[in-house]
């Protein structure tokens, strides 16, 4: 697997507090890399730097071999980095298709003159996409407000998949979901990876992390203190690193 995203010596302080203290991390194409750590370990700050929400004080982020320096999340998104936030960022009053295509709607000309949204194309593409991710989302639902948490999560992931994101950051995607829906999100994360996307999966549930991730990076006090393949570790070992009871080891 080739390197897709490389983070070198990333540092960030908020006033006197050093939140990131020289983070080094590599994400490969087609892998799910889980980032775990206790509250305040720096996970959220790290993914916000990757997405372009924050700007580092020091250090480099390289995407596909080129250094990137996003001024906004929009720039990050245009470069192929999609973030699925905990609050999902869907427009409740719009349909599934309208959400997937929001900001990038296909256009057709009415009477060869007036640019209008090609709703037929949106619906067709949405149906294909839903079939592709084998999710039980009603493509014709008038809005996403009535969908379950898992279905909404699937819509957000489908959006990333459709727009051929290079990196998808899933920020605690199963935090508010029922068990069945968690399984679905895990399945979708693996699907994204199988399509060549690099997935960064931030989470707390270690059983789920060990199921979904190819590798796990543990953060402690603003640094990545341990990186391991999922099959080479255990929950107990991860917890040791998360709580600072083990020596730093980066694989």
């Amino acid at each position: 697997m080739s390197d897709l995203l490389e983070i070198k010596n990333l540092r960030k302080s908020f006033g006197p507090v050093d939140v990131l203290r020289g983070v080094n991390l590599t994400l490969h194409k087609g892998e799910v890399l889980a980032v775990v750590g206790d509250n305040g370990a720096g996970k959220s700050t790290l993914i916000k730097h990757i997405a372009g929400v924050y700007h580092q004080d020091l250090g480099d982020i390289t995407l596909d071999g080129s250094k990137v320096d996003f001024a906004s999340p929009k720039e990050g998104r245009e470069a192929g980095i999609e973030t699925v936030y905990q609050d999902l960022a869907l427009a409740d009053e719009l349909s599934v298709g309208a959400n997937i295509f929001l900001g990038r709607e296909p256009i057709k000309k009415l009477f060869g003159l007036f640019p209008t949204i090609d709703n037929q194309k949106i619906l067709e593409e949405t149906e294909n996409l839903i079939n592709r991710i084998e999710s039980h989302i009603p493509p014709k639902a008038p809005n996403v407000a009535g969908l379950s948490g898992g279905q909404r999560q699937a819509v957000a992931i489908a959006r990333a998949l459709y727009w051929k994101a290079k990196v998808v950051i899933l920020d605690e995607p199963t935090a508010a979901l029922a068990v069945m829906e968690r399984d679905n999100v895990v399945k979708l994360s693996k699907l994204l990876a199988s399509e060549g996307v690099g997935v960064i999966y931030v989470g707390h549930n270690l059983v789920e992390i060990l199921d979904v991730a190819d590798r796990v990076a543990v953060m402690f006090q603003g640094q990545v203190v341990h990186v391991t393949r999922s099959e080479d570790t255990t929950q107990e070992e991860l917890i040791k690193y998360m709580t600072g009871f083990s020596e730093t080891k980066v694989a």
């Binding site: 999340p73 929009k74 609050d87 960022a89 869907l90 427009a91 309208a98 929001l102």
Partner: peptide, 12 residues
């Protein structure tokens, strides 16, 4: 979209 969720509209 903006009226529905201003933050999501901004993000896209």
């Amino acid at each position: 979209a903006m009226g529905s969720n201003q933050e999501s509209a901004r993000r896209v």
